[in-house]
Amino acid sequence: MQIFVKTLTGKTITLEVEPSDTIENVKAKIQDKEGIPPDQQRLIFAGKQLEDGRTLSDYNIQKESTLHLVLR
Rank of each mutant, 00 (worst) to 15 (best):
52 D>L: 05
45 F>P: 00
68 H>E: 10
19 P>C: 02
58 D>R: 03
30 I>N: 01
24 E>S: 08
30 I>P: 00
58 D>N: 08
1 M>D: 12
10 G>P: 05
58 D>L: 06
46 A>P: 01
33 K>R: 08
50 L>N: 00
62 Q>H: 10
26 V>K: 00
47 G>P: 01
18 E>F: 14
49 Q>I: 07
1 M>V: 04
71 L>R: 12
66 T>F: 07
6 K>Y: 11
67 L>N: 01
22 T>L: 04
59 Y>R: 01
41 Q>M: 13
1 M>S: 11
27 K>Q: 03
25 N>L: 10
55 T>V: 09
36 I>Q: 05
26 V>W: 01
18 E>R: 08
26 V>T: 06
2 Q>H: 09
46 A>H: 06
14 T>I: 15
50 L>F: 02
26 V>I: 14
25 N>M: 14
8 L>E: 04
36 I>H: 13
54 R>L: 11
44 I>K: 11
47 G>D: 09
11 K>P: 12
71 L>E: 08
52 D>K: 14
32 D>N: 08
21 D>M: 05
63 K>E: 14
61 I>E: 01
59 Y>N: 03
15 L>G: 00
27 K>G: 01
24 E>V: 13
14 T>S: 10
57 S>D: 14
39 D>Q: 11
62 Q>N: 11
56 L>A: 03
9 T>P: 13
34 E>D: 06
66 T>M: 14
18 E>A: 05
48 K>N: 10
22 T>V: 15
54 R>M: 10
21 D>I: 09
32 D>E: 05
35 G>C: 03
7 T>I: 14
32 D>A: 12
36 I>D: 03
70 V>H: 05
34 E>H: 07
39 D>C: 03
70 V>K: 10
26 V>N: 00
14 T>H: 05
50 L>I: 13
7 T>E: 08
13 I>Y: 11
28 A>K: 04
27 K>W: 03
42 R>H: 15
67 L>K: 01
28 A>N: 11
11 K>E: 11
5 V>F: 05
66 T>K: 10
68 H>L: 05
48 K>R: 14
16 E>A: 07
4 F>N: 04
16 E>W: 12
38 P>M: 12
17 V>E: 01
42 R>N: 12
5 V>E: 00
53 G>P: 10
28 A>S: 15
52 D>S: 08
64 E>A: 05
2 Q>L: 14
53 G>C: 03
33 K>V: 15
11 K>A: 08
2 Q>F: 06
61 I>T: 02
70 V>D: 04
14 T>V: 12
3 I>V: 06
34 E>T: 14
33 K>N: 04
6 K>C: 03
39 D>K: 14
70 V>M: 07
13 I>R: 03
34 E>N: 06
23 I>G: 03
40 Q>V: 10
19 P>Q: 06
11 K>N: 06
14 T>E: 15
50 L>S: 01
4 F>L: 07
58 D>G: 05
65 S>C: 02
46 A>G: 09
17 V>W: 03
65 S>F: 07
32 D>W: 12
56 L>M: 07
7 T>P: 12
59 Y>L: 08
67 L>A: 02
2 Q>D: 09
63 K>D: 10
19 P>G: 07
54 R>E: 10
37 P>S: 13
60 N>E: 06
58 D>T: 11
62 Q>C: 02
30 I>M: 08
48 K>Q: 13
24 E>Y: 14
43 L>T: 01
31 Q>V: 07
21 D>Q: 04
60 N>S: 06
65 S>I: 06
71 L>T: 05
21 D>K: 08
10 G>V: 04
54 R>S: 09
19 P>D: 08
59 Y>M: 06
27 K>R: 11
29 K>S: 10
60 N>L: 07
30 I>R: 00
37 P>L: 11
66 T>C: 02
11 K>W: 15
8 L>W: 13
19 P>I: 09
71 L>D: 05
22 T>S: 15
3 I>F: 01
61 I>D: 00
27 K>D: 00
43 L>C: 01
3 I>Q: 00
63 K>N: 06
13 I>V: 08
59 Y>Q: 10
23 I>W: 01
12 T>D: 08
62 Q>A: 05
10 G>N: 07
8 L>Q: 14
65 S>N: 13
37 P>F: 12
16 E>F: 11
40 Q>Y: 13
57 S>L: 12
40 Q>G: 09
39 D>R: 09
1 M>P: 02
27 K>F: 04
